[in-house]
Design a protein around this nucleic acid. Structure first.
Lengths: 98, 98
DNA sequence: CCGGATCCTAGGCGATACTG
DNA sequence: CAGTATCGCCTAGGATCCGG
């Protein structure tokens, strides 16, 4: 009955891949679609593309399209995402503590 | 490829209800099954019971059974769970910021 | 009262082929 | 290269009934 804001957080970064995507972008800086796809292991196109669109519309990542031939698209973490990273770190540390 | 400890965290507290269960127990102290069930809204027995067993075996909650008639069972957050709370708070605050 | 046993459903997820 | 379109699986989650 708390209307826990955690639910909101889970809408933003829940699901199987979003956190990993954000971590990867944070660690590697701007990254192209295919490189990102390889860096995660086992994502399908549908799922990855979907997650990226949602993350972008939620302001967590930035999509930048360079009109070259062939096209180049890069994704990078936004400030909002960077603010999240320390929290995810804390969560990760907690999970392996003791 | 990070073997992100986040995955471990998600094993522990992922899913639709676990975080809410932990929050509720933290906020309300030791709580009986039915009361807990009502405090969350829409959990089924199978799912709640399952989550509780997993949380217990992961050391996040404590199950205490009083052999009265009828039986009384109370759940409460462990120290490990309490350590997690501030992180979940941070996550919640992040999700509603700006 | 607590929760196990069953059964069922939605949608998250994956694989492949294909297009601008 | 960066995705969409299509299809199908699979499992987390839900409803209900029942037993200790």
């Amino acid at each position: 009955m708390d209307a826990c804001p955690l639910n909101r957080a889970l809408e933003l970064i829940g699901g199987k891949w979003k956190m990993q995507i954000l971590c990867s972008l944070h660690n590697n800086g701007p990254t192209r679609y295919n490189r990102l796809k390889k860096s995660l292991d086992g994502v399908s196109n549908t799922v990855l593309a979907n997650a990226l669109r949602e993350l972008e519309s939620d302001g967590l990542i930035l999509r930048r399209e360079y009109l070259e031939v062939p096209v180049r698209v890069e994704y990078q973490a936004t400030r909002r995402c960077e603010q999240l990273i320390p929290i995810l770190d804390a969560l990760g540390n907690w999970s392996i503590a003791l």
